[in-house]
Design a protein around this nucleic acid. Structure first.
Lengths: 195, 195
DNA sequence: CGAGTCGTTGGCAGCGTGTCAACGAGAGCC
DNA sequence: GGCTCTCGTTGACACGCTGCCAACGACTCG
């Protein structure tokens, strides 16, 4: 079934898509260094040289995969119920935890992907930037950008850690994770301390 | 001066130390993949084979470096001035920021080192465990371990993010970083929300 | 059905890592 | 002081992986 069909011609976009799809599977369960271009080619049913032809570099393909993963969650967060800041924050956190629970594999793959890489960091930073905008618009539309956007971006670091405590280590259950995120997000949005 | 002295014999422990010291310098300013064993050998003034002789693997040497970096901050945190929880928390954060400022290169190297690596994660998790103990003992000795240790560990994720906002991106100044960490740490230690 | 286009392939060159047998610096002994 | 023995140290070898490139041939157009 579905013969290998070596050398069959394909539309460049479709071929790119096949390669990215295969790479997505491999990088989701093996760290970057453990995946060779040979593996990537085999998974896509293609000659190894084609990887370089389309993406130039193994790293570039990896960046493409990361880009796909981080731009998936662009679904709307806007429809939050009216109410107090606490209620709205709780609803936002619930929505987020639902999303994480649904895509746990991919979420963890991104979080533990390959931080420390300058290019990967740039992509993640870009995604965080967008997410921070959404959070501020939804929960603190009147807060000035200056400290608060950076505060929210920092908050995402805690979000990743807490996700791993919940999904990987099991030291937090979902309710405990929710409580933590709500507590901290409120603290981040309300600057209490005197400098 | 200080002739190369090729092939000079040295006590194994001293030699290990020299290699680790050189590796520490290199990994502090270049990502893992960008440092070759040849570089490591040259930096230590030694033949390349000796790296493998002492550490077996480039990765093992890297893990050793990470272990050193994460266990350095084992100096005492105990001497916090008496006072309110807010004052003590502020003092702890100040102490921490001083340490980060002093070793910024190394701190960033660890934080952005190679997350996603199973072995590195294990070392970082171990270090976080110890640090969480210290924080709890110093600031909330009566809090039950169950949710609070995991909450503090999650907090360290925000600490890393905030450090990068401060040192790398410059979107937070030191005062702003301090305010954020104090606000969040207090929120983490005081569970406000109702589950 | 023949010719041209371009998606695709396989092999080549270079680099980096891990292994190993042999060398020789330094210590101990006579 | 010279000899010997230990073991820290070296350099070369084999292998795997990446990026590059010229040739191949599948598909299209006239």
């Amino acid at each position: 079934m579905t013969a290998p069909a070596r050398g069959r011609r394909l539309d460049p976009d479709a071929r790119r898509e096949e390669i990215v799809a295969g790479a997505l599977r491999l990088f989701a369960e093996h760290p970057y260094a453990a995946v060779s271009t040979t593996d990537l080619a085999r998974e896509a049913g293609v000659a190894r040289g084609l990887i370089n032809h389309y993406f130039g570099t193994k790293r570039a393909l990896y960046l493409e995969v990361v880009r796909r993963l981080t731009t998936i969650p662009e679904v709307a967060v806007e429809e939050l119920p009216p109410g107090t800041v606490e209620e709205r924050t709780g609803a936002a956190v619930d929505w987020f935890l639902d999303a994480v629970d649904r895509h746990r594999g991919l979420w963890l793959a991104v979080g533990t992907g390959a931080a420390g890489d300058i290019d990967v960091d740039a992509i993640l930073a870009e995604a965080d930037e967008i997410a921070a905008d959404r959070v501020l618009a939804a929960l603190a539309p009147d807060a000035p950008d200056d400290p608060y956007r950076a505060r929210v971006r920092s908050f995402f670091g805690l979000v990743r850690s807490a996700s791993r405590e919940w999904l990987v280590r099991g030291t937090l259950d979902r309710a405990g994770t929710r409580a933590l995120l709500v507590d901290v997000l409120l603290a981040v949005l309300h600057r209490d301390s005197q400098v």
